[in-house]
Design a protein around this nucleic acid. Structure first.
Lengths: 160, 160
DNA sequence: CCGTGCTGTGTTATATAATTACGTGAGCTC
DNA sequence: GAGCTCACGTAATTATATAACACAGCACGG
């Protein structure tokens, strides 16, 4: 089982590792991990939860970036379109990708209490969506699979 | 296999049937299908595709309703919370429910070309989401499962 | 008959999310 | 160094959603 956001782990290590990985991937594919893009990715990695574009914008501004909305959206477009981050539709928010590889079909578990998000992988056309698509003659290009609920920690808090 | 939005069918019949069904359900459960709520449901049924709240608002206004945003959102809240309609997260839009029963976990196939949406049913905790949740100790309360792609008709058009 | 509480509506204003449009500059290639 | 592409800076706008408050209709109990 992959490490999840709900488990404790060495977070600084995980940030650094992901950044190195991103840099390597960009170098390989001729992509430019510019300061803005890199900083947005870092912010997402640091938070390890879903952040709205304007949350990110606020962070950038407190760091002196005099940033307008397009700055955040451009960086997020880059990060999401190359698999470094994902958009969480149910929250209108974004999270850093916690799996190294591009081209997977992420599945998100979103805690409604603490807002943390954990990511798992799934096949693109498996399960209910795949069956429905096949039956309807529908060609899937992209999927959205998210669950809202309570993470283990918040479950425990609620029970107390 | 259930009838889908991508197949041709007697649409007027399907609207009337769904409305009668909704009225019956409301009567049974002591819910009030007021004029605004009923009209919004009718509009969703007529269109048979995903509509934004402001699309609905425009429709209401052309019909003389002098409606402000809360009018549409209240009606949509009612319809979605009682299972008469669903929110499509990937589009920030809404569709009428095409399954009679409340309490199911809908799965949507969204055509990016014609914007039509077909709905299938799935188990709440099946498949990739259920496995991920179990592994993480996560309690699912609600799920979002959507696929973006091309419906049979638009696939044919594209191929031409 | 009158108050009281509940639900739904009307309306104004505001909050939040995302995009358009246009100009500038850095780095590359020939 | 002219032309090109890509990314950024900035202002303005559009799209989506909610807050807040007043009031109307109706059921209920006295």
């Amino acid at each position: 089982m992959a490490r999840t956001a709900f488990e404790t782990h060495d977070h600084r290590h995980c940030i650094a590792e992901s950044l190195v990985e991103a840099e390597r991937t960009c170098a390989e594919q001729g992509l430019r991990l510019t300061p803005a893009r890199r900083r947005v990715l870092e912010i997402l990695l640091e938070e390890h939860r879903a952040l709205g574009a304007y949350d990110i914008l606020d962070r950038l501004r407190t760091e002196g970036w005099r940033a307008q909305p397009p700055v955040a959206y451009r960086a997020l477009d880059f990060l999401t379109s190359h698999g470094f981050a994902h958009r969480v539709e149910g929250l209108n928010a974004f999270v850093a990708c916690t799996h190294g590889k591009d081209g997977h079909a992420p599945v998100f578990l979103i805690c409604r209490a603490c807002n943390r998000v954990t990511e798992a992988e799934a096949e693109l056309t498996s399960g209910a969506l795949g069956r429905a698509a096949k039956a309807a003659g529908f060609r899937i290009e992209q999927t959205v699979r998210e669950a809202i609920g309570l993470c283990p920690a918040c479950l425990a808090t609620e029970a107390a």
